[in-house]
Design a protein around this nucleic acid. Sequence first.
DNA 1: TAGATTGTTAATCGATTAACAATC
DNA 2: TAGATTGTTAATCGATTAACAATC
Lengths: 235, 235
Amino acid sequence: MTERTPSEASRDIPEATVARLPVYLRALTALSEAGTATCSSEHLATAAGVNSAMLRKDLSHLGSYGTRGVGYDVEYLRYQIAREIGVTQDWPVVIVGIGNLGHALANFSGFRSRGFRVVALLDADPRRHQEVVAGVDVRPFSDLEAIVHEHGVAIGVISTPAPAAQDVADHMVAAGIRSILNFAPTVLAVPPGVDVRKVDLSIELQILAYHEQRKALGAAAVERPVDGALEGRPA
Amino acid sequence: MTERTPSEASRDIPEATVARLPVYLRALTALSEAGTATCSSEHLATAAGVNSAMLRKDLSHLGSYGTRGVGYDVEYLRYQIAREIGVTQDWPVVIVGIGNLGHALANFSGFRSRGFRVVALLDADPRRHQEVVAGVDVRPFSDLEAIVHEHGVAIGVISTPAPAAQDVADHMVAAGIRSILNFAPTVLAVPPGVDVRKVDLSIELQILAYHEQRKALGAAAVERPVDGALEGRPA
DNA sequence: TAGATTGTTAATCGATTAACAATC
DNA sequence: TAGATTGTTAATCGATTAACAATC
């Protein structure tokens, strides 16, 4: 059951590598469109914003797709990475929560071009059910299960307000979805076997703020109040 | 200049910890709003979706803000984390690129409530300069430098199409911005000392697709073509 | 053959986790 | 005092980087 052909050496790719493969894929697509036939690890690494040792290490998890002394065939490597990620196939996606962000996501061209097809837009608010966004009409949230089964949806996107997100996730899981991209600023609880990735705008800004604050401190090391001077411990 | 008071033990917090502090902050805010005065590391960790050992380790980098045998004072810990991140102060932010995503960002309430204030919306397209979005009017991109200086903007958000992003980043850096949140699907080159965080929707979906594909393989291990059977190496 | 560049090894670094002594 | 829970230590795990032998 879990046995594996030894020839298929490429299983169990580290998570950090998986997260970079789409970046390499994009860089290779750009090189391909620019008419470049071959590239070195150095060249590709620069385009992807990583160092070449890391790139080669990452690619070594997939297999041996380069040629020593020469480099990588752009088209060939691009296909191999696309296949490894799974974007050579079509992925039906459903988006739940068609507010400002949901509109932006539905209209985002980068999905379609990478094998993701938005098959349905759902919203709990009946006033939105008149709307057509990006050529797809907005349907009631209660249609979720039917749509998931009809289109074989494996990936769900949540762009509702935070209070609704857990309920949406529960229904997605119940309908058979096992991969969720969550834009709502809340921690989702899901059963084992379900993957959740979160995109959290205000967390990203807070991380930047932390570093920005430290930069400012370096510049004027005085302004910060001395440890504990302002706020006492509670009793 | 770089000397440091030994009492301020909390410098040099690991990057992984910094990325989780905003999650703890959000959980503490929820606890606070629910009227909870005290919580254990176990309780807070569950709310934040991490394990309690990691939470305590993370908090230990900030200082010793708990009470053995008792737990943490919710309000006190919340303030300490907020101060550490820097969200007790106000951060003026500028957003460049007011398409669908820019609209969604400008309207996002989570910014304002966490100390981020959108002081300007900029777009290169003159047709957008009539618009008022979320109470702020859209101004020409060429106003960037003046606005940055006027408001002391330290954080810039890029929500333009990919081809425009590098040029926007260059202008931001030239204007003095040293923290950038990039939503454009492209790798930005910036000088040392400038922080860039990227949010890339299609990369997130591709990471989910990779894992989804592997789940499907586990279920039906046969369907995948045998290694190299379909595609030959290029000459 | 000589030069170039991959794929891999080994060293280093950082992050996570479990366990427990300190202490409220 | 006894029970609870923190803060820290040490072990483990995973990711990054440099260096170089393999080889085109």
